[in-house]
Simulated scan of single mutants.
Amino acid sequence: MPLSHSSKERPEFDRYADSYTDLHKVSVAASGEEPAYFSAYKAKYMASRARNVSLTPAILDFGCGVGNSVPHLREAFPSAVLHGSDPSSESIRLARSRLEDTATFLESGSEALPYADGMFDLVLVACVLHHIQPSERARWMAEIRRVMKPGAQLFIFEHNMLNPLTRKVVRECPFDEDAVFLSRSELLGLARYAGFGKIDARYVVFFPRQLATLRPLEPLLSWLPLGAQYVIEAIA
Rank of each mutant, 00 (worst) to 15 (best):
E136A: 02
T213I: 15
N68Y: 09
T56C: 12
A112V: 08
A47C: 03
A40T: 10
L188K: 14
F13A: 10
A30R: 11
N52S: 09
G227R: 02
P208K: 07
S222R: 06
H159V: 15
D18P: 07
E177N: 10
G197V: 15
S69I: 01
R202H: 13
D117S: 00
F120I: 09
I59M: 03
W140P: 03
L221M: 00
D86A: 00
L220T: 12
K25N: 06
Q229I: 05
S48N: 14
D18V: 03
L165W: 03
E107F: 01
D178F: 05
S183L: 11
V53W: 09
D86T: 07
F38P: 06
P150D: 04
G118P: 13
V204M: 07
E75L: 11
R51L: 15
A228H: 08
G197A: 12
A30W: 08
D22M: 14
K8F: 10
V205L: 09
R49K: 09
D22E: 14
E136D: 15
E186G: 14
Q153N: 09
R145P: 01
K198D: 14
S7W: 10
N52E: 14
S6F: 12
S31G: 02
E75R: 02
R93Q: 05
F105I: 00
M148W: 13
R202K: 06
Y20P: 03
D86Q: 08
P71H: 07
C127I: 07
H130P: 00
A126R: 04
A103N: 01
S89H: 08
P225D: 06
E136C: 09
E107K: 11
R98W: 06
P57C: 14
C127V: 09
V66Q: 04
A212G: 03
S185E: 12
D117V: 04
L94M: 09
S110R: 06
T166R: 09
P216V: 12
G227F: 15
L217V: 09
F175H: 08
F105G: 08
M148D: 03
P216A: 00
L165P: 03
R139N: 14
N163M: 11
L221V: 04
T213Y: 15
D22I: 00
P174G: 03
L82I: 12
R74C: 07
A179Y: 01
S79A: 10
A116P: 14
A95Q: 05
E12Q: 11
S88E: 07
Y230H: 04
S39R: 02
L211K: 15
S185F: 13
E218L: 05
A228N: 12
R167T: 02
Y203F: 11
F38W: 02
S89I: 15
G67L: 03
S97H: 07
S89F: 08
L122Q: 02
F62T: 13
L55S: 15
L3Y: 11
Y193P: 13
V170N: 00
S110Y: 12
L188N: 09
Y37G: 13
E111H: 14
S89Y: 06
I132R: 01
L187D: 05
A142Q: 13
A103Q: 10
D14A: 12
D200P: 01
R93A: 05
F38R: 01
R49A: 08
P134E: 13
M161I: 09
I199S: 08
F206D: 06
R145A: 08
R145Y: 09
D22K: 11
